[in-house]
Design a protein around this nucleic acid. Structure first.
Lengths: 253, 253
DNA sequence: GTCCGTTTTGGTCGGACAGACAAGAACTGG
DNA sequence: CCAGTTCTTGTCTGTCCGACCAAAACGGAC
């Protein structure tokens, strides 16, 4: 396969024969602070949309993958390189950038406690904002970034139900209250603590370490520390059988 | 961390300052024939990968959206423009095209009965192949198209559980056996007919028209014809409550 | 026409799970 | 020591899933 000739032929491959695009990556950084889902935004200093808030991002380089480009932008903006990073999709409507033809590939990064990191960079140019404000129209975003943020939130809400993505919002070890707060913040619903414990421990999503965390300010029984376990998959509305007919056992993923 | 000045970023907007990419769209056309999930492939006539099978696709134009580009390519290749079309994601690994820097945006199109359409075009250059053969390594695909097809199949398997995507595999009206055959083909599992009926009708996924279809070759009771209803959403493993806490009722989507 | 095989369609039943609630356990602060 | 808070376990009820059975409605063979 690697012995394909590279060189002539291909008039259609001529530089002038296909329309050139700029390719950028945008990273929607999400985190939960104080029970509120927040998104990291930066303030633009250049036209177009100078002064407007936008999702951090930048140009892809030819010698890096899309994932690497997103991770590089994430490091440049927040200084952290450990994050759950999933591709959201591509956005390429004509005119989305008034200057040139650009296709952007959006990513979602789930972080725990971006707070200090943002403070470490230029605080004037980066800020966390509640997604309800952003999506409610309270803050005008550059380009089609409001749509991108909306898609990102919807994606996270859905993935929360299917994967162990919630553990990315918290640290390597966490209490069940912390984890439950993530679900409640992202979905904006109250969950019963007792039932939550059963659901999340029975299936092996989290496993308890022996240790216990210190109680909160108001006292209370010191909670056990958990860590992430293996991911599972369940289904609806026509529920997919856990075990496939032939080989692979389908459920795992 | 290095300087993140505004001027550096502004200079990138110079026409010569950002790396130009070719942007293409590739469409993974899936259908079910005779209880087997199949993918539409075309044979390449040009280098690179001349003679190899590939997913149909082409260059995006600056004045069209990504969705429009995918639909245009679909029409050019198969002649049909009614299809469930969802974006799969972007693929931009360096070197995936040996000649130039190209980022492709992959789509999944779910069609019913591509057979005649393919025959209508150049049959020598388009063919339906079972996905098990393609993913099993039985057929070598150009570029990273095997990975793309694999991701597309995985996506369809998952979406089948969440949406009414299955109705896109069949016609506007269909029997429950036909619909059940789609699930069984995509998931490769047997499903109980009686339970399937209850699941799919109770939630309003499909609604029965009064009419009945003709029985099959081997006789049997003539089945009722159904049509697609509204989509629902259900969840696991920490099941998302059907009704959200505040306004929107959350379940629909 | 009658019997038989096939497919659809409805019924039933047991186990599993979600959700609501109660109560005990373990800690802090006064 | 007591009150307040939080974690943790226990129990119960309604609902749903999955497996199975049985009747209904057809075509074909005899």
């Amino acid at each position: 396969m690697s012995t394909r000739t590279v060189g002539e032929r291909g008039a259609i491959y001529d530089a002038a024969a296909y329309p050139p695009f700029a390719v950028t990556v945008d990273v929607v950084v999400l985190t939960v602070v104080d029970g509120v889902l927040q998104v990291l935004l930066v303030r633009r200093g250049e036209e177009p949309f100078a002064g407007a808030w936008a999702v951090p991002g930048g140009f892809k380089r030819p010698d890096e993958t899309l994932d690497d480009a997103a991770r590089r932008e994430l490091v440049e903006e927040t200084g952290v390189d450990i994050a759950r990073l999933v591709q959201l999709g591509a956005y390429g409507d004509p005119g989305r950038d008034p200057r040139m033809d650009v296709v952007t590939v959006a990513f979602v990064a789930v972080l725990r406690q971006v707070g200090e990191v943002v403070a470490g960079t230029d605080a004037e140019h980066a800020a966390l904002m509640a997604v309800t404000d952003v999506l409610g129209g309270g803050t005008e975003l550059a380009f089609d970034h409001e749509r991108i943020v909306g898609d990102a939130v919807e994606r996270v809400r859905r993935d929360l139900e299917w994967s162990n993505l919630a553990t990315a919002f918290v640290g390597p070890t966490f209490t069940l209250s912390e984890l439950r707060a993530v679900y409640e913040a992202v979905w904006d619903v109250p969950l019963d603590g007792a039932n939550f414990r059963r659901s999340v421990t029975a299936a092996g999503w989290v496993v308890g370490t022996g240790r216990r965390a210190a109680p909160g300010a108001g006292g209370g029984k010191p909670p056990e520390l958990f860590e992430a376990g293996e991911a599972w998959a369940r289904g609806a509305p026509v529920r997919r059988p856990l075990r496939a007919r032939n080989q692979d056992g389908g459920g795992a993923r």
